[in-house]
Write a protein that binds this DNA or RNA. Sequence first.
DNA 1: ATATCTGCAAAGACTTTGCAACCTT
DNA 2: AAGGTTGCAAAGTCTTTGCAGATAT
Lengths: 157, 157
Amino acid sequence: MSQGATAGSSRVPASAPAPASAPGKEQRVTKQRLAVSAALDDLADFVSTQELHRILQERGTTVSLATSYRILQSLADDGLVDVLRNADGEAVYRRCAVTGHHHHLLCRNCGKAVEVEAPAVEAWAARIAQEHGFTAVEHTVEIFGLCPECTALKAGE
Amino acid sequence: MSQGATAGSSRVPASAPAPASAPGKEQRVTKQRLAVSAALDDLADFVSTQELHRILQERGTTVSLATSYRILQSLADDGLVDVLRNADGEAVYRRCAVTGHHHHLLCRNCGKAVEVEAPAVEAWAARIAQEHGFTAVEHTVEIFGLCPECTALKAGE
DNA sequence: ATATCTGCAAAGACTTTGCAACCTT
DNA sequence: AAGGTTGCAAAGTCTTTGCAGATAT
């Protein structure tokens, strides 16, 4: 076993920042492209290509794995989706509609996730970046720990 | 360019502190381990396992690729090196310049990394976790952007 | 003396690519 | 009709693992 537990954590951004005047060649509207796009609309979080492909299959839509890779890359090239890397190094995608910036507090035992806001962190990140002359900054923050229930369980062991 | 791959069940966070009461087992001092450690001392930037292996070969030292992977992961587990992911999803390592807990400010174009400390974030993370009853917390924070040089380059395009 | 480590090679997992058939424009 | 797209399968790259022999303590 190699591709085991995915305890997402550090995420690295992708390359190109969305070009203002994207040269994007026009893509043809195929049912596969529509299916992928529709699936992304329903998903709030980042998904890997493999996951998206599995979701499409469960929905009954048939899109080959290779095509899923091609469409997702194409969307990313055109800046229509955000691309990051999960802890396992897999590329993960999410529709760009910034739904509001927030972070997660995750239980490493049961996986429960609590969304939290971090104005203080936002400000800190912006300041640090500015001090070092960095521009076009983004950031990721994740907190891992044991939720109350799991803390109790562990204590009783 | 073709790259692919993933990382198997690798060690997770780049900034995860080693659990206080979970002492890593002592590793034996082998020539391979010393060679890897010495190479890391000479390298200022992050290197992938494959790159490090290539460097060792050029130096004349022989350390198998599999062993390079094992040693680097081991060092990361013990918190002796920083682990990140490059744009291709490869795991990259670098000896920790700062001994304490810290985070990174990364250039998404050239990969340059600056280590920064974030007492404010540490405090915030601890408070948030406490408010939600979480225990044994760790966290990861990464800031991405364009470094001064790359910002200038992009502007000139 | 022995528990650990190393090397080699095979196995796994994700991602890309060649090519023929298909579908959008 | 023409050319981009899709599917399938093979190839490619990074990473992990089983096992036997070598090694550190």
